[in-house]
């Protein structure tokens, strides 16, 4: 038996505060078990309507359009992943304490990265859609920003934890900052870099599937249209196919990552 109780008194106070916040949140959002239970028949009826075979004729003719939009979705995610992660690579030179030219540059850059990461991807996408017009371009740009932010941060974090030996050796031999980065650091973090890229790709695929809801291209665009036109069978079919594809990509990518790092 443990000698120390798992809940010290400070834990109880924290728990009470959390419970208080949750009650306050339930009031603020109008959430209640009663409303949920009351909504169950409604939800059941809605989900039944989504079954594609409920629609006559069965919307199989719709599959080519779904396929086309799904390919566009994957292209957006892939292009953003490759561009964003390649851009992030040189920035370890300012984002890492051991490689940055000075404390100030490092802090400024880290601050900027944190700022970039606070902007939700879909908010950015909807802003860019206003600037560039509807279509895949604003979605692509939003995901490039997002990928850049994620990979640059994770990569810099990793570079800070690598074995300093090779770097010291290069410094001792008269190597420059660039030499240290290219010959001592990058070979050590290469598998991590690939893993982060795959990780960003997984998120990008998931986000790209809903970009269309804010007018930024991909499968979400026809999903939103069909939801608004109450074409339940179409909606169900899109959701099922998209989910299957996204799940497959996600699983393969997660498996690859587990082999890498």
């Amino acid at each position: 038996m443990p000698s120390k109780p798992p809940f010290p008194w400070r834990g109880w106070i924290a728990a009470a505060i959390v419970v208080g916040i949750l009650f306050w949140s339930a009031r603020g959002t109008g959430a209640s078990v009663g409303a949920f239970v009351e909504g169950i028949p409604e939800m059941g009826a809605y989900f039944r309507k989504l079954v594609p075979s409920q629609e006559k004729p069965w919307p199989y003719r719709y599959l080519p359009e779904i396929q086309e939009r799904l390919v566009e979705t994957i292209k957006i995610a892939l292009a953003a992943t490759v561009v964003g992660s390649l851009f992030s690579l040189p920035f370890v030179l300012v984002g890492t304490r051991t490689l940055a030219p000075g404390r100030l540059v490092y802090n400024l850059w880290r601050g900027f990265l944190n700022l970039l990461r606070t902007i939700p991807d879909l908010v950015l996408a909807s802003l860019l859609a206003a600037a560039f017009g509807l279509g895949p371009l604003p979605g692509l740009l939003a995901l490039i920003f997002f990928t850049f932010g994620v990979v640059a941060k994770l990569l810099s974090d990793t570079v800070e934890t690598v074995d300093p030996g090779p770097m010291e050796a290069i410094t001792a031999a008269g190597g420059t900052r660039l030499h240290r980065a290219v010959f001592a650091t990058l070979p050590q973090v290469a598998p991590d870099y690939v893993a982060y890229t795959l990780y960003a790709f997984e998120i990008n695929v998931r986000v790209a599937a809903v970009l269309g809801l804010v007018g930024a291209g991909g499968i979400g665009q026809i999903l939103y249209r069909d939801i608004n036109f109450f074409r339940y069978g179409h909606v169900g079919l899109i959701i099922a196919v998209t989910f299957a594809v996204v799940f497959l990509i996600d699983s393969v990518s997660t498996w690859l990552r587990s082999k890498l790092v």
Partner: peptide
């Protein structure tokens, strides 16, 4: 990590192929 050079080469080649495919036909 130990980071194989061949693996990294493959990764670069794959990236370029992905880039070429993903930008084809995208209205960008």
């Amino acid at each position: 990590g130990t980071g194989g050079r061949i693996r990294f080469g493959i990764y670069v080649a794959l990236s370029l192929a992905a880039l070429a495919w993903s930008f084809s036909g995208l209205e960008v």
